[in-house]
Design a protein around this nucleic acid. Structure first.
Lengths: 193, 193, 193, 193
DNA sequence: CATGAATGAGTGTTCATTCAT
DNA sequence: TATGAATGAACACTCATTCAT
């Protein structure tokens, strides 16, 4: 039992170290040796928990994505109206990006740099958005949401948050509560009929 | 007195090779040796045309950004109405992303990976959007565009195109003429009053 | 918990290889790759034992200087008379140069090429001569040694040995026991009152 | 005629640039490109005047040595007494080291770093000291100079100046007129019977 | 004669990964 | 399980020298 606990802790420490280093130094300055040092283990130990560096990144991506998903759909029920449900999810996502900055930033990097996460993991990660896609489909059937590709809906309703987060991270822009309301307004205007 | 002349073709070949490799292999797998091989020169030759790798990336970024800017504001006149002017610019940008896939993709990577282009070059590159910001300001004065931060306007009017381009590049989605019109509609809905 | 232990033998092999290569090929033709090959390790292994090339050279200098110092003051006691003490130290130094040819040659190179060893290490290395300087000071107080700068004393009493060693190394000259006695005579005549 | 003059000037500029760079940056940071830049010519031009880098260094060594020799035996006549002649030459050499710092420093580096100048040039350079060796031989015949190897005479009479010059160059020591007289005294005491 | 462009071979150094314990 | 030592292959970059003009 003690062993198991210890193991899980080291695994988590390694994932956290990777998250931190990739965000702060960039992928090309997050060598295994630094990750190991930050997690307070030997470089060789990483290979007990992960197959190789790619596997470490993939696993971190998937687990962070799952954590994002949990956050995004907190309190969401399919019984909610399309409009209420969408605002709930949208705000959850926004708050995730505001409060879980490192996780959000890491996911954004993975989604933008094609070579970072492998195709299989990316596909796997996509599944996490299913409830939102279902909501949109329902909205389209009800004539509330524009009858356009979910890619377009995502591009205009969710993706802009990534830009705003990036700008906030660079201190070029501050995502105040007011700005957030304006942003939601724009998102809704973009996709509602 | 005579000498072999530094030929601009080699410089261009090097920039093209870099563009291609960064797009296909990612920044962290675009070593100088591969760039040289692809441009059909010796690795040492790169250093005749560029100070170092960072300088090569910076210059490529700035020149690609300038080329983007030229494309984005083609046929644009400040005498056009806000609505017409915006649609013109928006479509120019969209076509740039559709037709100059590699350039667009490279710029997207540069803007997303903080450590890729240095701060000075990024600031320099930002200037290229000024005419669009001016147009929005005019639109706000005329009561046509929402009185919100330009960052929000950009996030909802322009940034979504980056996502659509990425999806198209991955063959997940096709940006047909119809989709483009839908996308423009959403962009306009998001920012117009 | 167990691990492969960093073996001191490799460190020594690396220092020896460096000593040998710098002496035979000169500082500018003693690349890390050759040092590694001669010590029978991978180039990367050097960096486990030394920070970088400068550090390797510095450490070799300091350790060789310390070894020289031990040799130079063997059997020396401050209770000896100035004359006896000086001859003892002088002969120790001469024998060091005769018997530890590579060490002596390396130290000579380091002291002559200003850019080889960094200033801090050079200053550190100077401390090793203190007992001789003390002896000279005593000799001056006793009216046996000329009341001149220790730099002058060193220049005429010790430094000439470097030249003789160099000539012997080039087979231009042989430092026989007779020559050694003549050399000591000259050294003593140069500094005694 | 004009051409010839121009050529000689470039050759001299190259030799001066090399002298300066080797002294200030050390041999390992005096690349052909820097030498060319400092002499205000193209790197390729160096190869019109010199076979290669080794040849450039060799020639510089020999010409500097010749210049040294001219300086060393200024006003010297074989008709002078051994004692007077020796002091004259000794002081000439000392002043050369004091006044022609760069030349002296360069010669010292060449004589100390075995791999810098090739054997043939070194042997050639040795001839420049012949008048001094002749003087010593005469002194020995006259019973004024110790009957010991000229290498020993050189080691104690001339070589110490190199050390004093080096210390002066490092600002550790100042070769005042008084010190110079003390130094000469030591030199003479070391070799006279 | 003189040039700047061009380069192959090499530099010191880093890194993901494996090995021996 | 866990380790620090060890490494081959690679990296960005430099340099003495040659080439084409």
């Amino acid at each position: 039992m003690a062993k198991r606990t210890k193991c899980i802790e080291k695994r988590i420490a390694l994932l956290n170290a990777t998250l931190h280093l990739v965000n702060n130094n960039g992928f090309h300055d997050a060598p295994m040796s630094k990750i190991a040092k930050m997690a307070d283990v030997s470089p060789a130990t990483i290979y007990i928990y992960f197959e190789n560096k790619q596997d470490l990144i993939n696993k971190l991506y998937l687990e962070t994505k799952a954590s994002f998903s949990k956050y995004a759909f907190k309190d969401y029920l399919t019984s909610l109206s399309v409009e209420t449900g969408f605002e709930l999810i949208w705000r959850n996502i926004a708050y995730f990006k505001l409060n879980q900055v490192e996780e959000a930033n890491f996911l954004s990097q993975c989604d933008n740099i094609s070579t970072m996460v492998d195709e299989k993991s990316r596909q796997e990660g996509l599944k996490n958005l299913q409830p939102l896609l279902d909501l949109w489909e329902r909205g389209q059937k009800e004539g509330i949401i524009k009858p356009i590709s979910p890619y377009l809906l995502y591009a205009y309703a969710i993706y802009p948050l990534a830009f705003l987060m990036k700008m906030q991270h660079r201190n070029d822009f501050e995502l105040s509560e007011d700005n957030l309301t304006e942003a939601f307004e724009s998102a809704w205007n973009a996709i509602k009929i």
